[in-house]
Nucleic acid binder design. Structure first.
Lengths: 100, 100
DNA sequence: CGTGTAAGGAATTCTGACACG
DNA sequence: CGTGTAAGGAATTCTGACACG
């Protein structure tokens, strides 16, 4: 389930190259709690490929003029939707033994 | 086929943390042509998760006392085996239309 | 609100070399 | 052969702040 995609190993300069977003923007989106990089002992931010995909989506939304707090709200809702779906799926499977 | 696993985005310090190998060792294995990191414009080495797995294997071999040129030879052979298998599989499939 | 920039410091990475073995 | 280390320079990253709007 968690693999390379979620390992936080990419430094901010590389994220800048991969996403085209400025270092300032990347740090700002963290300040607004849209992304959550890890920190090395020294304090350097480390990002995952999943973070990079999130940043790409954020970039798109921003281009459409969507504000950061709205993006954050939407992402939270998307997450809820996903969790609810997972729980329902689990309940259904438990009930009908669809899996295994 | 190529995805996150092969993207060269990890700097040598992080590779050190992930593999336990010293920075000196990581650079040396490149000198011996066991691994091939990419370089950023500035010259910084960038590694993929695949490189990290290769380095882990190298570390195991080295612990067994295997020398770098032997490791290199073995890796080349493993690659040949893999290519031959792929070609045979392709020929067989073309002949018997096993796929799609 | 979102992003640019100059500021100063601390840690990273690079190469070539000497050392030991 | 494989790895450690000190050396000097160049680029990275960090934070807090001022700027514009």
């Amino acid at each position: 389930m968690s693999s390379y995609k979620d390992k936080k190993v990419i430094s901010i300069g590389t994220v800048n190259e991969l996403t085209g977003l400025s270092v300032r923007q990347i740090r700002y989106y963290e300040e607004r709690e849209l992304i959550f990089p890890e920190r090395t002992k020294r304090g350097t931010r480390k990002y995952s490929f999943a973070d990079i995909e999130t940043l790409m989506k954020i970039a798109d939304k921003r281009e459409e003029g969507v504000q950061t707090y709205e993006i954050k709200r939407d992402m939270a809702n998307d997450n809820k939707d996903h969790m609810i779906e997972q729980m329902l799926r689990g309940q259904l499977n438990a009930h009908f033994r669809l899996n295994k």
